[in-house]
Each structure stands twice: as C-alpha cells, then as structure tokens.
Simulated assay, not measured.
Amino acid sequence: MSKIDPSLFSGLPSAQPGEACPRCGAALQLRHGKHGAFLGCSAYPDCDYLRPLKVIEHDDDVEKPLEGSVCPLCGHTLAIRKGRYGLFIGCSHYPACHYVADINDQGNGDPACPVCSKGHLVARTSRYGKRFYACDAYPGCRYIINDKPVAKTCPDCGFGILTERKGRLCCPQKGCGYQQ
C-alpha cells in the first residue's frame, strides 16, 4: 500500500471528503467524462447533480482595452476582443452590454445599394475570413460583391457603383467592361 495520496498529483482539485450533494445529500465523487473531469453525485441514477471543476470566465477573450473609447450603449470602455471569426471591438462590460463594432470599419460612408436603393453596401467577413460586401437590407435584397465598392456611377452603363479591383475602378455590372 502506497503512502502517497494520488489526488495530490492529479493536477485537478478533488472533492472534499465531507462535501455533500446539494440536492440529495449524498457524497460528491470525482468523475471523468469526454470533456474532462467533473464532480458528480454518488447516487447517480437517482440524482443527476454535477458540477464542473473549471470555472468558465468571459474575461479570457479580452485582448486589450481601448483607452479613451466609450461604449455608446452603456458608457464603459471598449476593448479589442477575440471571437469565433477573429478580432472585433466590443464592450468591456460584456454580459450586461452586447455592443459590437467591426475592427476594420474606418467610419467612411457606405455606398448605397445599386439594386434596391434602400440599403447600403457594408463590409462583412465570412466564416473563412474572406471579406465581401453585401446590402444591409438583407432579407429583401440579396446583392453581394467581392470587391470593395466605390460610390461612383459607371459612365458607360449608368450602374450605381464601381468596384476597386487591383488598383483600378471597374464596373461590376455583367456585360459592361468599363475600367478606369
């Protein structure tokens, strides 16, 4: 019989021997699942209480607070955050405030949609990280382009926008070959 307690070297906090289940009063045991270790009730089929060992916090995704910037919704400071689709600007008071801004937005005016004339072409990022421009009146208008739009009309066909492609202005309308 070994004199060393194996729970000292497991790297995980173990349940204290006297700790009881808050639902039924039975002892809690250290269990292992596909997502890691957790504490579960020893009277499992009758009581399904479990508690994770790690506490999940929302502050892990905060990269850097932006000094001098204020959230327009709640007044707290804004921060550069890391999310599922890359970096973005969000409120530092996250669970209470859900303000989000695009990190690539320079604040210049978005050109009007040439198809519906109701919405504007705004920059979006796909789940693969590719940039595209789509109408913000989305369910009603599904216009989308890959190149950056410029708010100038085409002199040849009169289409509402031109696109910036390889340093030149081009007409995105099919059949029109205008380039500047």
Rank of each mutant, 00 (worst) to 15 (best):
H32G: 02
I103G: 02
P149M: 02
G119Q: 06
A101W: 01
D48E: 06
A26Y: 07
Q29G: 12
V62T: 09
V150M: 08
S117A: 11
P13S: 12
T77S: 10
H76F: 02
R131S: 07
G18P: 01
P149W: 01
S117Q: 11
D110E: 08
L39S: 10
C113L: 04
G160N: 03
P45K: 04
C171E: 06
L53I: 15
H98A: 14
C71I: 07
R51G: 02
K34W: 12
H32P: 00
F159H: 10
I56M: 08
S92A: 07
R81H: 01
L78S: 04
C113V: 06
K174A: 08
G90P: 06
R165I: 15
S10K: 08
P65Q: 08
L28F: 04
G167R: 09
Y44V: 12
Y99W: 09
E67C: 07
G75R: 05
V70S: 09
K82D: 00
R142H: 14
P111K: 00
K166L: 05
P17K: 07
T153I: 10
Y143S: 09
E67P: 14
I145V: 14
L50D: 14
P72R: 01
P155W: 05
Q106T: 12
T163Y: 04
A20T: 13
P65T: 11
F9V: 15
F88H: 02
F132A: 06
S14Q: 13
Y178T: 01
Y44F: 11
N104R: 12
L39C: 07
C141Y: 03
K3R: 12
S92P: 02
H98G: 10
P52K: 09
M1E: 13
S10F: 13
V122G: 05
G107K: 06
